[in-house]
Design a protein around this nucleic acid. Structure first.
Lengths: 337, 337
DNA sequence: CTGAAAGCGCTTACAG
DNA sequence: CTGAAAGCGCTTACAG
């Protein structure tokens, strides 16, 4: 490929001027010279080498994203929203998919550090992800899940406990005699928050209410297998609220296999609220995370932190909360569309 | 961050040796020196700068992927499979999501060229994508969809016409009196293939068979809206085969809204066969694309082409076909799981 | 086995 | 407004 030197030669100028033209600065270029440079560049199909540029400029204009599972539509939607926000700022989003494999996550972290991404948005598979590589590289990181108070990263999440409580409270208001929580892995931080929210709603019911919790992985397959056993028990719950939409789809599938009608025999509520949830059969009542707002804010925070490395210490103190929204559809028995 | 020079200094050696140690070559290093280098690197948390490395090495060890819509689970699964294959070869996969926006696709192409990815795997939004930027950079590209014979890229796809015919033939064998095709945008190359396969199956039915085609975008929302009108018509089809699973989910949703039972009142067949299709309600009969095999082969082809630029001309002649598989589940009325 | 030096393709003070 | 030169952090012939 043609280099800046080729262009300079053809235009009868220096590489400095070529750079000034392509970056609109930092020095002015006379219109005539600019024209010649542009013409030469067009003729040679010149494309500045972003690697060389980043090397001398000291910034890659690149934001890394690490998601646990890109095949999960929630992370797909999130990735898209983050990319929209990044592009608006002229940054490229690099997506790394951990495929639910912590080793894979580690490799993405290393790859991002080596490639000198300016900043990172991360949804870790782990409750306490290892930020040291980013810390050593002084790369600002924002986690879109709860992290320890002293973790060297910012975080931005909804209030999972409150949101989980809202979902359970909705079931309580339905007057069901028994409700269940299909939670994530029992000992994870996230599961603790869902559990506390769920139990708070049960406690506030003001009446006798059987309740039970089961745990499954986040995949439909896992959730379906667990639900299949659960729903076959004689005292199965009348309603189930889940920690993710994916799990809710597993519950719907299990109910189908067992010949249980939703919502007549079993009410179901999901959590995350991707666009797909509207097209479930039946349409899924769910707690919506404000994906676009979270994405826009995350990119804003991280881009600012990358631009002003001085405030690094402040940035890692950031613990922001976003709002959630309960979306009521047919799966809990409220609406028929 | 520490540089190779810092490490060399601390280890009392030269940057060349640091490079030899971290790359296991191309020159040998005495065990003692290697130890000192490794110790110094560990102490300084040295991470080689991949940008600088790529600049002098002439390769980025990076493969670009462009997908039309990462929120579509089919592309999510595909991205994951491609990343697995890339990682096995020590390459990093960079994912660019076009968000169904051709302008976005163009930007990803430009970004990949500027970042000097070694090769590209592409699923374009367009029937005739513009490969010139890649061609000028002599970056090998493989398209995972049909492309023109003289397009300067390789391609690897299933035989869509044959696969679409298999799906329609299955409906024909059910003895339904009328079947429909929910196809993609009417004038696209892909839609033509689905149509020909569908009509071939109809023609081979050997009996009176009403048939009809409708078109929708690939999203559930679009497919649902189109199906809602279609299924409300008095002579609605008894069975529908779709061009994608996403569209099939839209049909299931529309049937639900209209109170039609699947498969009793309406049989449905999807196309793509992601893992999610098994958890639809009811589980979706679909044509499975061999995602992992396609991904592995695509990476293999493109990586080889990047390694041997001499064979560039041969590479762009590659037009490979992969096999498909009809997976029969409950949605067409055959099985109940 | 190891070091000094040139080069990858940019950007940016420094002179003019 | 423009050019010659140093530097970003690596790799790799070239000498020794």
């Amino acid at each position: 490929m043609a280099t800046g030197r080729d262009v300079a030669q053809l235009a009868g100028t220096s590489t400095a001027v070529v750079s000034y033209v392509f970056n609109n600065g930092p020095r002015n270029v006379s219109p005539a010279t600019r024209e010649r440079v542009l013409a030469a560049a067009a003729e040679l199909n010149y494309r500045p080498n972003a690697l060389a540029r980043a090397l001398s400029f000291g910034r890659t204009s690149t934001i890394g994203l690490i998601v646990p599972d890109i095949a999960n539509p929630y992370f797909g939607e999130l990735a898209r929203a983050l990319e929209d926000a990044a592009m608006e700022r002229g940054e490229l989003l690099l997506i790394g998919d951990s495929s639910l494999d912590p080793e894979r996550e580690r490799r993405h972290i290393a790859a991002f550090v080596e490639r000198r991404v300016d900043s990172v948005v991360m949804i870790s598979l782990l409750d306490e992800p290892d930020f040291t590589a980013f810390e050593q590289a002084s790369t600002p990181v924002i986690a879109l899940h709860p992290i320890a108070d002293d973790a060297p990263a910012a975080s931005l999440t909804i209030d999972y406990e409150l949101a989980a409580r809202a979902a359970a409270a909705h079931l309580v208001a339905h007057d069901f005699d028994s409700i269940g929580l299909l939670n994530g892995p029992a000992h994870s931080v996230g599961a603790g928050q869902h559990r506390r929210g769920f139990l708070a709603a049960v406690g506030a019911a003001g009446r006798e209410l059987r309740h039970d919790e089961r745990n499954s992985g986040t995949s439909r397959a896992d959730a379906s297998a667990v639900s299949l056993r659960w729903l076959a028990e004689p005292d199965r719950p009348r309603a189930i609220t889940c920690a993710t939409d994916e799990q809710a789809y597993g519950v719907l599938h299990a109910a189908y296999l067992l010949g249980l009608r939703v919502p007549e025999d079993l009410a179901v509520i999901g959590f995350d609220g991707t666009e797909h949830s509207e097209y479930a059969v039946p349409p899924l009542t769910t707690v919506r995370q404000p994906i676009r707002a979270i994405a826009a804010r995350a990119i804003e925070l991280v881009a600012e932190a990358a631009a002003e490395p001085a405030d690094g210490a402040d940035f890692t103190r950031v613990r922001e909360l976003a709002g959630h929204e309960l979306i009521v559809r047919a799966s809990c028995g409220c609406a028929r569309d």
